[in-house]
Computed example of a mutant assay.
Amino acid sequence: MVHSLRAYHQTPQLRGTPHTGQSQSLIHRLDQDHPPAVPPEASACVGITISIARHERARGHHRAPCNAGVQSSLQACDGKKVALVPTMGYLHAGHLSLVESARKCADVVVVSIYVNPTQFRVGEDFDAYPRDVEGDREKLRAVGVDVAFEPPSLYTPAPTQASTSFVVGQDGHTPGAHETFVQVEELQKGLCGITRPHFFRGVATICTKLFHIVEPDVAVFGRKDYQQWRIISRMVRDLDFDIEIIGMPLKREEDGIAMSRCPAHLLLHPQCLPARYQATPNHASVPAAISRNVRLTPDERKRALSISKGLKWAQAAVAEGVTEAPTIRTKIVNMISEAGGTVDYVEICHAENLNPVDAFGPQDTIIAIAAKFGSVRLLDNIEIAKDPAAAA
């Protein structure tokens, strides 16, 4: 493990204000509060200096002290494999499992924590999205993360703009503000892209920026957000990023429900919620962003298990020789509907290009589900490998 990492700072110039000699933390050293003994070979840092220097130059800012260490940092980090786990913070066990996977395939693990405004549209409560900086840092320390990358903003606003100005659907555009976005044209169209057409543009753009800044060798994503994982994989291929994208299987809670932004035990431990929600009776006003699963009533949660049960049934049915996709789809829709859910979509698609398929067998297939119980929209999926005999 790399114990000693440089901490770099964002100066006020980056925020468009006069330089006062003060700085705002951009990179947080997870060992800085309780630094361990540093072995000589671990005194080199991740090559974040290089990326931050280029990041600032690209935005028209020049920092000679930072740029002066670029070459030495490259040499010091030579041979170290860096993994990035992009997150929006408020970390749960699913995120930490991605960190554990990253640790297995890299020497240095960087976790980014950034609530990205371009993934939200007006009315989706960007301001209410939970932030728990110190709690996230403690969790990351516990699993051996080397660096938490916590940029206050990754877009270029006019000096008077707040970050909410980049929430999709705002009126007008300020001259000189950020206007470049990345879209993966076809993969973003179906599934969740139908009801949230802005979302994957924001995801692709922020991941592009993170990849340029951190310059990882590996980036780790969860396959619960299956379409997102495929979109980032395609973007990396098409834009010639020299990054390996790893998709880890989704994590389930004990009763089988797919793990969401927070595990369900938060219901029993309200102190784990941000302070402004702890005194709320039954957490009634907790925003959807905190956790889809937490916001299910006990009855809704029981009925929502029809989603995972439907996926398990489908997997068994295909194993027993059922190949017609419409038959499988209709059965799953009925199971969810009979349990009181509202189906957004149940789609059976080619696992790589996400085009709908008529039959299982010749290709790897994904069954992807989005459904609502009460006001809570849940996502789940299962991958079914191709039948070698059918593919022959």
Rank of each mutant, 00 (worst) to 15 (best):
F181N: 04
V184E: 03
T174C: 15
E179N: 12
G202I: 05
I213Q: 08
T208W: 11
Q188S: 15
G176L: 07
F200Y: 13
E186S: 07
Q188R: 13
P197A: 02
F211K: 06
V203Q: 08
F211H: 04
H178P: 10
Q170H: 13
L187G: 06
T180M: 14
G190M: 04
I213L: 15
P197R: 05
G172T: 01
T208A: 14
I206A: 08
L210P: 04
L191H: 01
T208Q: 12
T208H: 15
L187P: 08
Q183P: 03
I194K: 14
D171Y: 09
G169T: 07
I213T: 14
V182W: 00
E179W: 01
G176Y: 06
H198E: 09
A204V: 05
I213C: 09
I213R: 03
V184K: 00
E186P: 00
E186T: 13
G172F: 07
E185L: 13
V184S: 00
Q188A: 15
G202P: 06
E185F: 08
A177W: 04
D171V: 13
I206F: 07
V203M: 05
H178G: 12
H173C: 11
I194F: 03
H212R: 14
Q183R: 13
F200P: 14
Q170W: 02
Q170T: 11
F181K: 02
P175Y: 11
T180E: 10
C192K: 06
R196E: 03
